[in-house]
Computed example of a mutant assay.
Amino acid sequence: MEQLLALLASYDVLFLGHSVPLYVVLAAALFAFVFLGSYPLKRRKPWRIAASKKWLRQFRANKDKYTPVQRFTYIRKVDHFLWEEILMSCFEERGYPIIRTKMTRDGGSDGFVTINDDFVVIQAKRYKGRISKAHVVELDRLVNHNRRHDKGLFIHTGKTSTPIMEFFRSNDHMEILSGVDRILSFLDGEELSLFGNRLNKPKAMR
């Protein structure tokens, strides 16, 4: 090992016009590989945002061709990251300020929206079965451990158990948006209530 280190130290490489020991370059490369390789983010792609708006137009245009259950089943087949973008686009077209977060799979926030001066952190899940208690707890933690977060909104396409529903009902800083009727009303741009407030209709539908 000592011989190897001595050998590496004896070699220099030219970097930006300067002579740099080879072992320094290798160490920097190793650090970049480990750090960047473990950094769990993907930036929001402009094409994905555009795709979410196109998806909404087509979804609404075909509204009368399918039953509510068929439309809801179709939603559950949407790519998870596209589902997040669709929801954020729905808030945006209703005139609410939004922040699209970087894409991760670490249980973090999926976006933010300001509703009547409340800064709301959003968790979006495209479930088929029952929702996970761990995801609800994570959203509650995000709200309670950040002074900027006023409320939390959990949007999902699965089934909600009675204990979890009671949890949302007993916490005024938390709201759940789920069920065939409410999800479809939100996506179709119809009026519905969140946190005791009526959401705006999309500008194009007013």
Rank of each mutant, 00 (worst) to 15 (best):
M1D: 10
E2W: 03
L5A: 08
L7T: 13
A9S: 15
S10P: 09
Y11P: 02
D12W: 03
V13L: 11
L14M: 05
F15R: 00
G17W: 00
V20W: 00
L26E: 07
L26A: 13
A29I: 15
L30Q: 08
F31Y: 10
F33I: 12
F33C: 09
F35I: 05
F35H: 08
S38K: 06
S38P: 07
L41A: 06
P46V: 00
W47S: 05
R48Y: 01
R48N: 05
I49P: 00
A51G: 06
K53A: 11
W55P: 14
W55F: 15
L56F: 04
L56E: 00
R57H: 09
R60M: 07
N62P: 01
D64K: 14
D64E: 14
Y66M: 08
T67E: 08
V69H: 09
R71E: 13
F72Q: 05
I75F: 04
R76N: 14
K77M: 12
H80C: 12
H80T: 11
W83E: 06
W83Y: 15
L87R: 00
M88S: 02
F91G: 00
E92V: 10
E93M: 14
Y96K: 10
I98M: 06
I99W: 07
R100D: 11
R100M: 12
T101D: 04
T101Q: 05
T101K: 02
D106M: 08
D106G: 11
G107N: 07
G108T: 03
G108F: 01
S109C: 10
S109M: 03
D110T: 15
T114L: 04
T114H: 05
I115R: 00
N116L: 04
F119N: 12
K125D: 05
K125A: 10
R126S: 14
Y127D: 05
Y127N: 08
K128Y: 03
G129R: 01
R130L: 03
R130E: 11
S132P: 09
K133Y: 08
H135A: 02
V137T: 13
D140C: 02
R141E: 13
R141I: 04
L142S: 06
L142Y: 04
V143N: 00
H145D: 06
R148L: 15
G152R: 00
T157F: 10
T160C: 09
T160Q: 05
T162S: 15
I164M: 13
M165C: 14
F168R: 03
R169S: 13
R169P: 12
N171A: 06
D172P: 09
L177E: 06
S178L: 01
V180P: 07
V180Q: 02
V180L: 02
V180W: 01
V180R: 01
V180A: 07
R182T: 15
R182N: 13
L187N: 01
D188C: 10
S193W: 03
G196T: 04
L199A: 14
N200E: 08
K201R: 15
K203E: 14
